[in-house]
Simulated assay, not measured.
Amino acid sequence: MRRARGLTAALAAGAVGVLGACAPQDRTPEVPVCTVRPAADLAPEQGVLFGVNLDWDAQSLADYTRDLGRRPAVVVSFTSVPLDDADVQNVTWAADQVRAEGGMLLLTLEPDQGLAAVTPDVVDRLADLLASFNESGVPVIVRFGHEMNGSWYAWGQQPEAYVRAFRDVAAALDERAPGTATMWAPNYAGGYPFVGGAFAAQPGAPGTALLDTDGDGTVTAADDAYAPYYPGDDVVDWVGMSLYHWGSAPPWGETEMPEPGKFAAQLTGTYDGLAGDETSAPDFYQVYGVEHGKPVAIPETAALVVTDDVLPWAQGLAVKRAWWHQVLAPDVATRFPQLKMVNWFEWDKHETEIGAHVDWTAAGHPALRDAFVADLPEALVFADEPRPCVPVGATATTEP
């Protein structure tokens, strides 16, 4: 899902103000050097990381943490790539807030100018920036070109170019930013090949033949929606797939209760319900989590509640709760032991796809937040309170 990436100057100033003792500072004998946590160590051995996808213009991480009474283990931010100066500033502000509150940054990179714009110089600049975050105590996971199997992004449905760009980014991170992991995150296969999108693969175009995985001469729902885009086990640390409850059936945009078991069925490619038979979708969890041995993430999730409709408040709560009872079920870690991260999409925004305003939040106001917190299972992993540290390579100083 696309969202605005800006961070207002006022909020940014507030973010800097909350760093306090948690910000990198002049070294004293009592303050240790920041630890660069290896990328391979970011997935928990037990449990599921709880994360949040914040609307940075509406709420700081400090405010969200205070209201929830928990420190998210993962905080999501988006940026275009190539990075311009404003992008660097916004991403740095996000990293500052993560450093202050604890956890790790999940940075989604959107190559809006096309994959050809992801040049070696662009990749090197990115890796150096993320290395500086790692050296100041902020682990990072890079989700490059998410939903690349979709037809709505400039980097979509170009398997050869996408894999090449992903591998270039991964190689630079491996060399320059060892505290940064990679995440490969396609769109859920329901509806594939998403005919009619602005960037849909065209017959005869470079790479299109790779999408015809069953060899029948056309790209259809019977083709594998994931495999042509997979960059390889050697460069993928995490796999992820965003799963939203947009409603029960077309036309989308109605506030409706999710079907029991919908989340698990979509994750495993077994969904056959009100939205139709989607069992042609591969079993994402089994193939990439179990067979490829990768930790699985749900980088974005939430349930649609249209606020333009005149609905009883309890109905909206019931829809949200029914969905979080699935994605954050107490037994989710035992049913899906490779599932290591779930991030809630905490936005209240206009959705152009349905022409309506949607409240996706789980903590948007006190009564809703109280219900959400009361239902959070013990299997979730939250961030520890951060400790002051000196960035790696910083010049030591002594107090007068």
Rank of each mutant, 00 (worst) to 15 (best):
P178S: 15
P203H: 04
L210E: 11
D233Y: 11
V195E: 15
D214V: 00
G217N: 03
A201W: 06
D214A: 03
A222D: 13
G217E: 10
A222H: 13
Y192I: 08
V219I: 14
V236Q: 04
G207K: 05
G204T: 01
P228S: 12
W184F: 09
Y192K: 06
V195K: 14
D234K: 06
D212G: 09
A225W: 00
P203V: 09
P186Q: 06
T220F: 09
P203Y: 09
V239G: 05
P186F: 09
Q202G: 08
G197F: 09
G204E: 01
A177H: 13
D212Q: 09
G204Q: 05
Y229D: 04
A205M: 10
A221H: 11
R176C: 01
G179E: 06
D233C: 06
A201N: 07
T180C: 13
V195P: 02
T182L: 13
G204D: 02
P178W: 13
A172P: 10
T182P: 07
G217L: 02
Y192C: 10
T220W: 08
D234P: 01
P228N: 01
L173P: 12
A177C: 12
E175D: 13
A221K: 04
W238C: 03
P186I: 07
Q202C: 05
T208C: 06
G215S: 00
L210T: 00
L211V: 00
P206E: 10
A222C: 08
M183V: 07
G207Q: 02
P193W: 06
G217T: 07
A200L: 11
L211D: 00
V235C: 07
G204A: 07
P228L: 00
Y188R: 14
G204I: 01
Y230M: 07
A205P: 04
G190Y: 13
A177Q: 13
V235W: 03
L210G: 05
G207A: 04
G191T: 09
A181W: 11
Y188A: 14
Y192Q: 02
D234G: 03
W238L: 12
A225D: 01
D212K: 07
P206I: 10
D223P: 00
A185K: 03
V236Y: 05
G232K: 04
A201P: 06
L173K: 14
D223S: 02
Y229R: 03
G217W: 08
T213M: 00
A221L: 12
A227D: 02
A209F: 09
A225C: 04
M183K: 10
Y188K: 11
D216N: 15
W184N: 06
T180R: 13
Y188C: 14
G217C: 02
Y192N: 08
V235A: 02
A221Q: 14
A201T: 08
D237G: 15
L211I: 00
Y192E: 10
A201K: 03
D237W: 08
P178K: 14
P186E: 08
V219K: 07
V236K: 03
M183Y: 05
E175F: 04
D237S: 15
A177T: 13
D214N: 08
P231V: 01
A227L: 04
D216I: 10
A200V: 11
